[in-house]
C-alpha cells in the first residue's frame, strides 16, 4: 500500500521536538503540586518521548541512549524512591507516607517538608511509569526479542 522510505520530515521534526518534550515532562512532574499533572502524567509524557524516538529513529538510536536494561533499572529505582520515602516516614514515628514527619531530617517547617516529600514521591512515580511504559512498548514492538539477539541467532 505504501512504499517504505526515508521520511525525512517526521524524522527531523521529532529530532528537534524530543528534548523539549522531555523537559516539558520534567516540568509536569516537578510542578505537580501547583498545576495539573504529577508523577504519573509526567512519566507518561517522558515515556511517550522515548516512544516517539523509537518510532522515528529506530531501535539502534534508542538503544544507544536508553537501553532495556536501563529501563528495568529505572523502574526499580522509581519504586525504591517511592517506598523509601514511605518507610522513612515510618522510621520517623509517623504513618506510611506521612510527609510532615520529614521535617525532623530536612530542617524545614512541616508544611514545607510535606511539599518536598510529595515532590520526591512524584519523581519516583515518574521514573517508574516512564520506564515501565517504555519497556512495555519495547517488548510489544520487538516481540520480546531484541534485534541484536536476532542477528546473533541468524
Amino acid at each position: 500500500m505504501i512504499i517504505r522510505g526515508e521520511d525525512i520530515i517526521i524524522k527531523t521534526i521529532s529530532r528537534v521536538l524530543v528534548p523539549f518534550i522531555q523537559l516539558y515532562a520534567l516540568y509536569v512532574i516537578m510542578h505537580g503540586h501547583y498545576s495539573p499533572g504529577g508523577g504519573f502524567q509526567g512519566g507518561v509524557i517522558l515515556g511517550a518521548s522515548m516512544v516517539l524516538l523509537f518510532i522515528t529513529h529506530g531501535y539502534a538510536e534508542v538503544n544507544r541512549k536508553f537501553s532495556e536494561n536501563i529501563a528495568v533499572l529505572f523502574s526499580s529505582i522509581g519504586v525504591l524512591i517511592y517506598s523509601g520515602i514511605g518507610f522513612l516516614c515510618l522510621l520517623l514515628l509517623g504513618n506510611y507516607l506521612d510527609y510532615s514527619k520529614l521535617y525532623k531530617i530536612l530542617s524545614v517547617d512541616p508544611a514545607h517538608a510535606r511539599s518536598l516529600g510529595i515532590l520526591g514521591v512524584e519523581i519516583g512515580v515518574g521514573f517508574a511509569v516512564m520506564a515501565v511504559m517504555f519497556s512495555i512498548f519495547f517488548d510489544i514492538s520487538t516481540g520480546g526479542v531484541s534485534p541484536d539477539d536476532e542477528e546473533e541467532a541468524e
Partner: peptide
C-alpha cells in the same frame, strides 16, 4: 495557564498517536 498545560499534553499525544498509527500502517 492550567488549561494551556493540558492542551499542550493533548497536542503532544495527538501528534505521537498519529505518527504511531501511520508508522504501523506503513
Amino acid at each position: 495557564e492550567m488549561f494551556i498545560d493540558i492542551s499542550l499534553v493533548y497536542a503532544l499525544l495527538n501528534f505521537i498517536g498519529c505518527v504511531a498509527a501511520a508508522k504501523y500502517l506503513e
